[in-house]
Each structure stands twice: as structure tokens, then as C-alpha cells.
Amino acid sequence: MNAINNFGPPLLGGLAVTIGITLAAAVLAVVAALGGGLARLSYYRVVRWTAAVYVEVFRGTSTLVQLFWFYFVLPFFGINLSALAAGILVLGLNTGAYGAEVVRGAIVAVPRGQYDAAAALNMSRLQTLYRIVLPQAALAMLPPAGNLMIELLKNSALVSLITITELTFTAQLLRSETLRSAEIFAVVLLFYFLVALCITGAFRLAEGKLKKSAPG
């Protein structure tokens, strides 16, 4: 309790940055996951391949190295990103790459008969996707998406290594001033845990809502 009283307030600023980065990256991740997942199922080979390259590159390389690339290497090619932009971009695209596989899997799991029924009712391909396939796939996507969001939250600590003063970085600063490692990191762990708990709760809520509108 004492630890929270002493170190909670100075860590709150960092916590806010962590939450902000996570939220921004989550939005990007959702867009990238939907785009990437649908692209992997495209009729056009070029689109499928482009999406496959994106997914495999981001899944197959270290997130930390990706961060260094976006922040330290891209300037050599004339692309200057702020630390915040680089952090959000890498975290979002990284989570999006895993998410694309979740989206693809969930869409593929929608039974063939649903497409047949939509076609027999003369619905267009786009209508079939938005009205029939995605709403059913969404329910299957939620639990793994919740996992990915928690991963994203935890990965956000990495951006401390490109100079962003988020929760972990703030803790490091505080520690070098006070040398009270145990208390500080106990509070940091608690903060991460509480945010993760909120994410879990939000996804449970969304799942319940979806299930209610589509029982069975």
C-alpha cells in the first residue's frame, strides 16, 4: 500500500502514455488485421501475396528490431518518424499481422452453405461479406483478438527503448533517482495487470453482446 502511495502518482503519467499508445496501436491493428486477413483471401494473387509477405515479415522478425528499423534506420531513407509514430506504427502493424491470421481463420470457418444461401438470394459479394460472413466470423475472432490486445499492451513496454516515456521508462527513471526497485516495479506490474484486466473485461462484454444478438 505504501508503495502505491509513494510511487503510484509519479507513474501515472507513464501509465497514461502506455494506455494511449496501446489504444492507438490497437486501432491500427484492427484495420491492418481486417485488411490483411481479407487480402489473404482475395481473388487476386498479387493481393494475396502482398498480404502474405506483410504477415510473415512482421510475425517472423523481432518486434524490438522492427522498432529500431522504423526509428533509427528509416531516417537514412529520408523517412523521419517521431518516436511516438514509429512506436505506434510498429506495435499496430505487428499485432495486425497476427490479427490477420485470426481474421482469415475465422472467415474460413464460416460454412460454405452460408455463401451458397447468400448467392441463392442474389446478394452481391460485398453484401455477403458484410452482412453474412463477417458478423458470424466476428464471434470467432473476439477471444483470440482479446489475447492479442493484451500482448500488445505488454509489448508496448518495448517503445521505452526508443525514448518514449511510457510506464516502463518512467519506472526506470524513478528507479535511478530513488533506487527503490522492488516497490516501483511492483506498482508497474500492478498497473499492467489492471489494464490487462480491463481489456479482458471489455472483450468479455463484447462477446456477450454478440452472442446475445446471435444465440447458437
Partner: peptide, 27 residues
């Protein structure tokens, strides 16, 4: 042309009414 399938292929996320209405509205 319209078709009725062996395994019904109803849309599970829509009520009976909305299953029938969907294509009337959108198609």
C-alpha cells in the same frame, strides 16, 4: 432462380424475420 437447401443454410445471426427480410431489403 431461388433455392432451398438440404441443410437449410439459415443465417444464424438473424431472426427468422430478418432471414426473410435481408435480401428483400438489400437485393
Amino acid at each position: 432462380v431461388g433455392m432451398v437447401f438440404q441443410h437449410f443454410n439459415l443465417f444464424p445471426h438473424m431472426s427468422a424475420l430478418h432471414n426473410v427480410m435481408e435480401a428483400l431489403l438489400r437485393v
